[in-house]
Computed example of a mutant assay.
Amino acid sequence: MRSTARPVQAPVPALLSLEGDSNGIADVFRESPSRQMAIIGEPGAGKTVLALLLIRDLLPEPEARDPVPVFLSLAS
């Protein structure tokens, strides 16, 4: 294993605190300069559901060339 030398944290301007429903979360992700997102919150707050909704909204159309989103759980 070797390091990629990439920073592990997004620049401070890219850190967001969002509240509300899940509508538009994929748009927020797509507009992010780093296209990285960590979903954090209290137990039972809906983090997993939000992540799955985000993945569903990011799934590419058959003709699209966007990367395929993958769900990774840090707990496992």
Rank of each mutant, 00 (worst) to 15 (best):
R2H: 15
T4Q: 10
T4W: 12
T4I: 10
A5K: 15
A5M: 14
R6M: 13
R6H: 10
P7N: 10
Q9R: 13
A10R: 06
A10E: 06
A10S: 13
P11N: 09
P11R: 14
V12N: 08
V12K: 15
V12I: 14
P13W: 05
P13F: 02
P13K: 03
A14K: 02
A14M: 00
A14I: 00
L16W: 11
L16F: 10
L16M: 15
L16D: 09
L16P: 00
S17H: 11
L18P: 03
E19W: 03
E19Y: 12
G20N: 07
G20Y: 04
G24Q: 05
G24L: 04
I25P: 03
I25S: 03
D27E: 14
D27N: 11
V28Y: 04
V28S: 01
F29H: 02
R30F: 05
E31D: 13
E31S: 07
E31Q: 14
S32A: 12
S32P: 01
P33C: 09
P33H: 10
S34V: 11
R35M: 05
Q36S: 14
M37S: 04
M37H: 02
M37R: 07
M37A: 13
I39Q: 02
I39H: 01
I39E: 03
I39D: 04
I40R: 07
I40Q: 03
I40T: 10
E42A: 15
G44S: 06
G44N: 01
G44L: 05
A45Y: 08
A45K: 05
G46R: 03
K47V: 08
T48H: 09
V49T: 15
L50S: 06
L52W: 04
L52Q: 12
L52Y: 07
L53K: 15
L54Y: 04
L54T: 04
L54S: 06
I55M: 08
R56D: 03
R56Y: 05
L58T: 05
L58Q: 09
L58V: 02
L58N: 03
L59C: 11
E61H: 13
P62L: 06
P62A: 10
E63N: 09
E63Y: 10
A64S: 15
A64W: 07
A64E: 15
A64K: 04
R65V: 12
D66R: 13
D66K: 11
D66P: 00
D66L: 14
P67V: 06
P67L: 11
P67C: 04
P67R: 08
V68N: 04
V70K: 08
F71P: 01
F71I: 09
L72Q: 13
S73G: 08
L74Q: 13
L74S: 10
